[in-house]
Amino acid sequence: MTTMPVRRRRWRNTAVGLSFLLPNFIGFLILTLIPVGLLFYYAFTEWNVFGGATWTGLDNFRQMARDTTFWTALRNTLYYAAFHIPLTLGVSLGLALLLNRKLRGVAFFRTVAFFPYITSIVAVAQIWNMLFSPGYGPVNELLRWVGVDNPPGWTTSADWSMPAVILVGTWRDMGYYMLLFLAGLQTIPGQLYEAARVDGASAWQRFRAVTLPGLRPTTFFITVLLTIGSFKVFDLILVMTNGGPGQSTLVLAQYIFRKGFEENQFGYASAVSIVLFAICLVVTVVQFVVNKRRSS
């Protein structure tokens, strides 16, 4: 077997590799890849979804360059991502470390941490809006109680609506990513910790020398997922602020929905999606390269 000619072995590897992919790939190709691929065509057309699309070349992208609302949505999306990604990463890793123990009641606390993710998003939006209610909400009552004279207006103020949405986004997502981190923590061999302990490493040193490197594939996966999820944030904003007040929380995914389904400019909506896609891709590739370099 080891004497098999190189070319034949490569061919065999390809066949074996493809046979693994096939069951998933057929479904993926037809139902996801082809529709997504069509988007790259529609982005260069004027298309009202019902009829044929008219080729307009780069018109959509030229329009986008002048479209102040697009830039506002892009800026808001970056704002959301810039805070939501590190915050969620930190909180969910912290939770995972905390709850990766044999504590009494750990199952309960894990379930509690996962609760925000499974609670209906409509209920989530309603309750948080109520908590944030500027006049009567408990959040501001608490702030006043600790001595803040002029607490923020949260979702009713253009300056504070994005921080409010980021907080709720983190609160909602932390359990999800905690779960992924927990699974990742199980892949780190216990002997490594034992060895580190024998060497007299402190808890912090063990975290730096064993946990972080051991979690690298997981962290990469989570960071990519979190980045994409943050750039695509939609449901939460839709139900919490619907982009307001004014345009203060309007994000790209919502803008795409508006342009497509509300204003029937599916060609333009596709073009904006392509831009969103490109941003995600660039960030992902950078993460990919950084990850490759670190792990080698």
Binding site: S157, A158, P245, G246, Q247, R258, E262
Partner: peptide
């Protein structure tokens, strides 16, 4: 109409929230 109403929707929340 649809795009203009979307712009005016933003105006509505902007004014009544006291943002501008």
């Amino acid at each position: 109409t649809a795009p203009l109403q979307n712009i005016l929707k933003d105006l509505h929340t902007e004014v009544l929230s006291g943002t501008s």
